[in-house]
Design a protein around this nucleic acid. Structure first.
Lengths: 258, 258
DNA sequence: CGATCCGTTGATCCCGATCAAGCTTCGTGG
DNA sequence: CCACGAAGCTTGATCGGGATCAACGGATCG
């Protein structure tokens, strides 16, 4: 088990912030239910809570060595790739209970940078310790794998959304997905506040800021949502679903095999 | 450890096809080097080789229960999502040494369908047995995690390519990526044969078949590649790189944080 | 108050989708 | 062997969704 990365230490001071997973409000999202007391103690000994991460602050940066994985605890973060020419490509937004840092698994160096979109906090899972514990506690290994699977599935859904939907459909699909994620957290799936700007939304969905704005306006005109700046009120989820299905982009979409 | 999925058994008869990883030509891609003899025996006891998979045949299908993961051994396969309206979205092409089936990790049901693009074969890794062995052999666990990481990284690169590049840039980036993957397999990175049709390429990259064709023609006109049907000869890899970087799509791409 | 950032809306333009035609290659059956 | 048709691919012409350019309004903050 290697020591905490010095770079991380400078960014986030987590000394003495021991976690108590059993009391965590989102434990149901991270832990196998029915985990035993001794296993829980192992976890508590490993997991650290981050201090609050200010809006715009970096959790990890492309190029950093893989030290820990991070589980959202509160707030939200964006994870982005940097192109050679210096622009950013946001590859994901992360809410409580969602796992960040998997971009470093391949080479043990992060390829992405994670920044808080608002005041946030995360659980810090030192990777070596996590591997160690997972190999002793199959149920935990299983939970870990499911979190990884969610990340992969989410990326595939995003690809589908971008390749197959028009601008309005992408935004509609995004809002519905966000709605489900909030529901999972026992927040209202009908009313929520976007923590990302139109710019970040457009960057993620492959649209310009103007197009995002127009798409949102259109959904509002059609009485599918009510919008006030970043506050979203979903009025007609079924209608949003229809938008997602309707008139797909016809990009090589006929069947190739019967 | 559960029994082999009956559905799979119908598709692929792998009785008595024991694997011998030590003799496998692509062992370097799957195994930690310096793995011990006893650990290798454990692996050999678990891994099965598939019978040859005919072009167009299905390896696993969306909705199937997670039974095994699959490592490409020869040939190539495509993995695709199905939209509600029935069109397909290809989320990846898989060559030898690359891991398929991770789409089932989240729910233990496959969300994608895998089909062979040509006569192919795979290694079959029963998931439960794989987990079991990995937890006893840290080096193997590590290899497994790296393969998962590669999948995640590849999907992020794809997103970047699609969101930030024009048509020609996407195709150029795809060819370069393929070139690297062939090189890894000790095939020529300069000359290779595409196993996917223009349709499948377009579907993957979010382009129509006509646009793919025009992009390929353009790269050929500029003497960056030579093309004969599906045979690709890369003449100027640096030039291709330039195309990838040059004139990106201006989709919300200025920096948001200094 | 300005200054700046964020978001909306309008006008115009362009890349890639769409429509259309034609060319290979390949498989099938006469 | 050729006739035939169906894929698969290419190229040309036109169209349209979203990028681009531009102007403006509202929030936040000094």
């Amino acid at each position: 088990m290697k020591r905490g990365g010095s770079k991380l230490m400078k960014l986030i001071d987590f000394t003495s912030l021991r976690a108590t997973c059993a009391e965590c409000s989102i434990a149901a999202l991270c832990l196998p239910h029915g985990i035993s007391k001794p296993d829980l103690d192992l976890l508590n000994a490993m997991v650290r809570k981050s201090k609050p991460i200010a809006k715009g602050a970096v959790l990890f940066r492309a190029g950093d060595a893989l030290d820990s994985l991070f589980l959202g605890r509160s707030g939200s973060l964006k994870v982005q790739l940097q192109t050679e020419s210096g622009e950013e490509q946001i590859v994901g937004f992360f809410l409580p209970g969602e796992l960040m840092g998997l971009d470093a698994l391949a080479t043990h160096k992060h390829t992405c940078t994670a920044r808080a979109l608002e005041l946030s906090s995360v659980c810090i899972l030192p990777y070596d310790a996590l591997s160690e514990i997972c190999s002793h506690v199959p149920a935990l290994q299983e939970s870990f794998m499911r979190l990884i699977g969610q990340e992969i599935t989410a990326e595939q859904e995003l690809l589908l959304s971008i390749n197959r939907r028009q601008a309005v459909g992408r935004v509609a699909a995004f809002l519905l997905a966000l709605s489900h994620r909030y529901q999972r957290l026992h927040y209202s799936p009908r009313e929520f506040r976007l923590s990302m700007s139109r710019y970040e939304l457009g960057n993620y969905l492959g649209l310009t800021i103007e197009t995002v704005s127009r798409a949102v306006s259109r959904l509002q005109q059609d009485n599918l949502i009510a919008v006030d700046r970043r506050s979203i009120h979903i009025l007609n989820a079924d209608g949003l679903h229809d938008i997602c299905r309707g008139e797909p982009v016809a990009v090589s979409m006929r069947r190739s095999h019967a």
